[in-house]
Every structure is written in C-alpha cells, then in structure tokens.
Computed example of a mutant assay.
Amino acid sequence: MPLLSAGIGRKRLDAETLNVMVWVAGLPQPAAVVYEAGLTGFVLARALDKAGVRCVVAAPSKMERPDQDGQAGCARAKLLQLEEMPAVRAPTLAEEAARDLVRGRDDVRRDLARVRNRVSELLLRQGRVWRGGSGRTCIHHA
C-alpha cells in the first residue's frame, strides 16, 4: 500500500486508482504526486495527467533509499518540489501493451522450457532415454 504524503499530512491508501484520485482531489490545488515505477504500471500516472494533476513516476534504481523511519514520502516530496526527482517517462498505451506482450511471450517461453526439462528429467529417472536424434521433433514428441 503506498504511503502518500503532503504538506497537510499523510495517508495510507491501497493501490486502487480511484481511491488515490479522490484523495488527491481533496488536496489543496495545485497538487503534485510522485510514486515509484513498479508492477502497477502507469495507469495512475495517466489518470492524474488526464485530471490535470502533475505526476512524476520516479525511477527506483536512481533513488537513494531513505532510512526506514517512515520519512520516505517526505524526502520524495522535497525532491519533487526541488525538481530533482529522477523520473521515467510513462509509455503510451500502445507501448505498454507491446511491452506486456513481449514480457508475457518470454514468460511462456521460459515456462515451456522448464516443463520440457522436468518431463525429460522424469523420463531419465525412469530409465527412458531417447536415442532417436533430436529431442525436439514430431517423432520424439510422439
């Protein structure tokens, strides 16, 4: 759950875009938001941009890790205010969709290789050794 900070206080929210949008709408305007790029993608950045709220998606690999005393949000707010937040560009919907497709295809390819290896190892443990040439042919699969 992201911890959101503002000059008026702090609030812990879930990752639901609508909940974040409602909270940001209640802040004194103009408001600005920063969050770390991660698994949630860029839906929040696009929604905030559409609503006219400045949003910076921070590059986690380029950020210093503050002490674990709950001050990370304040430190990021200061960096945002000073225009020193290391940011990444939010990809377009088409770019993000292409990236998801490539990642998904790669995941499936790796999963298939793991399963093939497991089956081969199981067969080897059972004493079934293929001696008919390549192991990736129709004859082998049959």
Rank of each mutant, 00 (worst) to 15 (best):
G38N: 06
T40Y: 14
R76W: 10
R105T: 06
L18S: 12
S120P: 00
G9Y: 01
E64I: 00
R46W: 10
R54M: 08
R46H: 14
L18F: 03
L93I: 15
A25Q: 13
L112F: 07
E36P: 05
R10L: 01
S134D: 13
R118C: 11
L44I: 05
V53I: 15
S134Y: 04
P28Y: 00
V115P: 00
P28V: 03
K62N: 01
Q81V: 04
G7L: 09
L82E: 09
A75S: 09
V34S: 15
D14E: 14
A77W: 01
Q81E: 08
P28E: 11
E121Y: 02
T92V: 13
E95G: 09
Q29A: 15
R125L: 10
H140A: 15
R12N: 07
D67I: 07
W23G: 01
V22F: 06
E16R: 08
R12Q: 13
V88D: 11
L79M: 15
A97W: 02
P60A: 08
A98Y: 08
K62A: 15
I8T: 15
E83G: 07
R116S: 10
G127Y: 00
E96A: 13
R128C: 12
G104A: 13
N19P: 05
A32C: 10
C55R: 00
V34D: 09
C138M: 12
R10Q: 11
R110W: 03
T17N: 05
V33L: 13
D100S: 07
R12S: 03
A97E: 15
A75W: 10
G9F: 01
K78F: 03
A6N: 02
T137R: 07
V129T: 14
G132I: 01
L123H: 04
V22Q: 09
